[in-house]
């Protein structure tokens, strides 16, 4: 499975997306004094994005290849 170079590229892409999501300027977009369902927007954003990244990694490495 980890011979699959496609997965390597996907993981590299996830890394780049993560770098983008967790840094200026995307971070600044959510740096506002508002809240979503009682949770501060920035806080909610980071945790959701974080979970998204983890989910993507899991999806890539755990998915059974035919």
């Amino acid at each position: 499975m980890y011979r699959n170079r496609l997965n390597a590229q996907r993981l590299a892409a996830v890394f780049l997306v993560g770098c983008l999501l967790f840094n200026y300027p995307l971070l600044a977009l959510f740096n506002k004094a508002t809240s979503v369902l009682g949770v501060p927007l920035l806080y909610a954003y980071i945790f959701i994005a974080w979970l998204g990244i983890i989910g993507l990694i899991a999806l890539i490495v755990e998915r059974r290849l035919d």
Binding site: A12, F22, I54
Partner: peptide, 23 residues
């Protein structure tokens, strides 16, 4: 506030990249 978080975001990113480096 959220200043404690980068210490855990970094490793998350590293694990994505870890396939190149750690392996």
């Amino acid at each position: 506030g959220i200043g404690f978080l980068p210490i855990y975001l970094g490793p998350t990113l590293m694990m994505a990249l870890g396939w190149f480096i750690i392996a």
